[in-house]
Design a protein around this nucleic acid. Structure first.
Lengths: 329, 329
DNA sequence: TTGTAGGCGTTATCAT
DNA sequence: ATGATAACGCCTACAA
């Protein structure tokens, strides 16, 4: 027994337009009629059909979010930020895991477009030419998190600066032999920007760059663990390791601890991101924090502004990172 | 430039019914016409409007998921399981964070109903009477994860048995003074079932239950940390602590490590859930694993069966837990 | 203040 | 094999 606006109208003895008016509380309706209608709505347990409404008003009050993988520790926090703000503005969110796979990205994008989402939040390191074209063709508003591309609004942090700053911190602590475990070089963030920050910091401190100390990991715990083991086997091992994300840093931590090293006396370890786990391991991880919740929240706010056709002060928002000195360094 | 079926029809010189037929690839359409239409679709970049379609066919190919908090380590994995299977059956998911707040739960439920989701997956410890009534009134298919209520299909594990089994394991290891940090007693899972398992195991082993060794925590890291500190200050501290979830166990780990205890020699620590982090801390946590991904995947499979009106073998699915012996015990 | 009627983009029934 | 046409449930001029 699902009732529609017609049933309510009949029951209340008014026309469907009147019912529609009270549902969308237009102020023109007479109090008594309002009451009559409300009573009918109550009694029938009527709920408006948002699909039908959407077809008419041409918006769905839903936004799609494309995320690499919700089970990766970094993302839940940003999704939470997105959902909180979306909810505040009466939007619901479609969650899609892309695994950073371009095919999945386009596939999901098409589906979201067909489902008429009002906007999309896209989280990735890279936006492909093909996808960018789709943004344009369907002209559905998109905001990027963590990446930056052409004229697409985005929110991110200064990865070069952040990684430079944490390496600087290590240098100030007196370290000279500083290793890093970076992402694949196809990854513009963990493989390029953060590596560049590392190199710049070293260069500016007149420390020569030793390629032996630069390990290409990936982004998971295991890469960190294995990378660290290799580093620790060097004739002249590093006194500090900068893993370009926390998960790898935690893998590094284990490698060091297994060898009985004292952290941070024998080896300093620092990460990047400040995932939830970073502060909970022992010793707690020094890291440069990305404001993950805020990134989600702000990106969503930007999107709602676009949807409301409000003015945007900036299309490119760069958030501040912050250095969290804890126990591992 | 958004085109609709009419535009395609005009461009291809056929009727809209024909276009509809090729879009939904009905086999009755002549190859040449098919081609003509496809060409028009290509050229216009036409995408069918799923909203309009839904209005007509009365299903939306979307399912809603009500989850306490995606940023809590336990849930991302189950959400991933849900999304993978949902995607496989061509559904998209609406993600809603309820914070276990009954008001939010009902509010989201109403919204999802208005948006005409085909089904809902509800993750919680408790289902309130009020919400249950809504399930019935709107008669929209719901499947529960982690809880069990009346005739609602559900997937969960045997919490009593699981916690009993891990405490048994501790007993077999020779522990006699075993403490536990449980959830609030309003929490049927972490506050009741898992506590009951603990007590039963002790009772069956003829170990008297010492209330001093039962601490009401909560479910977060901090509760575990603080609970453990209290326990460790006892005149006669425990030799083993069973935290009823991993996050608290990791808090316990820190408390012990800070005091310079050797794990597991001086103190054994075990958790519950097997969240991602459990295997990555050092020492790695012994825990009883809930198959989180599977719980999500199976619940979704059950839901799709209901939606396809396939027969359900069981409405109540109880998954197996497994004991993961690692380094902390 | 209220009602009538057309239309949103599809699908599906019934002719042709 | 194809085309007209009436829904689906709602909103919104426009009319009364």
């Amino acid at each position: 027994m699902k009732f529609n606006i017609k049933d309510v109208a009949r029951k209340a003895g008014v026309s469907i337009s009147t019912v529609s008016r009270v549902v969308n509380d237009s102020k023109v309706v007479k109090p008594e009629t309002h009451e009559k209608v409300m009573k009918a709505i109550e009694e029938l347990g009527y709920k408006p059909n948002a699909i039908a409404r959407s077809l008419k008003v041409k918006n769905t009050k839903t936004i799609g979010i494309l995320i690499p993988d919700i089970s990766n520790q970094f993302y839940p926090e940003v999704v939470r930020g997105i959902e909180d703000i979306a909810n505040m503005y009466q939007y619901n969110i479609f969650l899609c895991n892309t695994d950073l796979d371009p095919e999945k990205e386009t596939k999901y994008f098409d589906i979201l477009a067909e489902k008429q989402v009002d906007g999309i939040i896209f989280i990735s390191n890279i936006v492909s030419e093909a996808l960018y074209k789709k943004f344009k063709v369907y002209d559905i508003p998109v905001v990027l998190i963590g990446a930056d591309y052409e004229d697409v609004p985005s929110v991110s942090i200064d990865n070069v600066g952040a990684s430079k700053s944490i390496v600087n911190y290590l240098i100030k602590k007196g370290h000279k032999r500083i290793a890093t475990i970076v992402g694949k070089n196809s990854d513009p963030v963990m493989g390029v920007a953060r590596l560049e920050g590392y190199k710049t910091a070293l260069r500016e401190a007149n420390i020569s760059i030793d390629n032996e100390l630069i390990i290409e990991g990936g982004h998971r715990y295991k890469s960190g663990y294995e990378g660290a083991k290799r580093l620790l086997e060097l004739e002249e091992p590093p006194t500090a390791i900068f893993a370009t994300n926390d998960e790898m840093a935690i893998g590094t931590l284990r490698a060091a601890l297994e060898q009985g090293l004292d952290i941070p006396e024998d080896l300093a370890i620092v990460g990047f991101d400040n995932i939830d786990m970073a502060g909970k391991v022992y010793p707690a991880l020094t890291t440069v924090a990305q404001p993950m919740y805020e990134m989600g929240a702000i990106a969503t706010r930007v999107l709602t502004k676009i949807l409301n056709e409000e003015e945007l002060e900036t299309r490119k928002i760069v958030l501040n990172y912050s250095l969290l000195e804890r126990e591992s360094s």
